[in-house]
Every structure is written in structure tokens, then in C-alpha cells.
Amino acid sequence: MNLYFRPKLLQSRLTSVFRSATTVSEVVQNEQVDIDDTENSLAREAEIEKKRNISRLSAAHYNVINGRRPYKEPMALPHLTVKYNRKMYGKYGAASGVNPNICWPSKLDIEEKQEYEAVAYPFTIKEMMTMVAEKREQERLKTQQRDNEIAAKFAKLGQWKKELKEKIAKKEAEVEAAKLKKERLIEEVRRHFGFTLDPRDERFQEMLAKREKEQKKREKQARLEAREKLMIAKLQQKKVEGVSE
């Protein structure tokens, strides 16, 4: 197995292995320091406190655990930000040493916020209310218009139904009349020949055409006569009128 110990790692491991030995040497050093500051009881107290701290926490963590801000002076770039300082004030109060006036937005912040709000909230509540009222009114008008249309159409419905029925009946009657006429013609042709002939037969067709022709002729004659009669009647009337005058 290839193992590579970095010198730093090795050092730390060694110190952890020989912890008891190093603490002993430290104590020797500290005793020397104590001797230097024998008059200053405060410093001594501090020293004792330091020795009592066997938590092995880093200074920052030790501070946090004891309800103090972790760093007195900024250690990284984020520690210079307003957000971080606000947090320090919010969490550790006046003891954090932060001036609380950074808790409020600056002039620039306010301007930015107002600009944002002008875009995000373009309408006031009143304006929105009127807009909604207008929309509702338009919807109502639209439904009402449609209702009116339907009511007007419904009023005419009976008449329309009647008209439609009449139209259908008329058409049916016409069809029936045409059918009857045709049947009559066929019957006549059959009578002429004296036996039932296939309507597709040539002779039948010929006869039919002839009959139809005759029929048309007769009709025409009838029309002419009718017109003549009418004319005569008119003339007579005129004569009568002339006499009376």
C-alpha cells in the first residue's frame, strides 16, 4: 500500500498522540508567564479561565456557544456586508457592537424598492376595484344581451314552427299531385293498349310522350280560352260603362 503522509497531517496526528506530553510542556511555559504577571490578578483570572476551557472549540465557536458574536473583527468578505452586520445585531443585540441604524433600508434601497413596486403594483386598490366592477358589468351586459336575443327568438318560435309545418305540407301536397297525375297518365296509356305494358317499354314511352303533349296542348288551349273570356268580359264591362256614361 502506498501511503503518503502530508507533513502537516503527520504533525497534527503526532500532537494528538502525545497530547499529555504537550500539555505538560505548556504548563511549564504558563508558570513562567504567571511569574511575570503576579501582580495583575485580573490577568491571572483570565489565565485560569483559559485553562478551564477544555472544550477544544475554536474561538469563534466558543463565542457562539456562549452567546457572543463569533468574530470581533471581519474575517472574510461577507463579514463586511450589511446583511451580516444586521444579523449580528439581530442575534446578539447591542452587545454585538453594531450600530442599529443599518437595520433600516438606505436611501438607495428605498428608491429601488419604490421603483420595483411601481412596476410590480401598477394599480391602486381603488383602480383595481373599478376595473373589476367594469368587467363584471360587461359580463352582466353580455349575458343580458344574449338573454334578450333568446327571449325575442322564443317569442317568434310558434310562428316559425307553423310556417315550417305549412311549407312541408305544401311540398308534400305538390309531390302527391304530381304522382297522381303520372299515375293517371299511365292508367290512360294502359287503357289505350288494353294490357299492362312495362313503363320502360318504347311504345309506352312514345304513348306517354304523346299523351303528355296532348295534355299540354289541352292545357294551353284552356289557358287561351280563359284569357279570351277574360278579355271579352273586360270589353263588355267597358261597353257597359260607356253606355252608362
Binding site: 444586521r86 449580528m88 445585531y89 373589476v132
Partner: peptide
């Protein structure tokens, strides 16, 4: 409160909610 900011204002409702809240 621990973030140390000042309390903001509450914003107005959007247009599609205005009818309900008024």
C-alpha cells in the same frame, strides 16, 4: 427578528384577488 431587518409593509393583493378581499 433575528435577521435584524425592519418589518416591511404588507403588499396589496393582485388584481385577480381584489374582488374577494374587498
Amino acid at each position: 427578528f433575528e435577521s435584524g431587518q425592519s418589518i416591511p409593509r404588507r403588499m396589496i393583493p393582485p388584481p385577480d384577488a381584489i374582488e374577494y378581499y374587498t
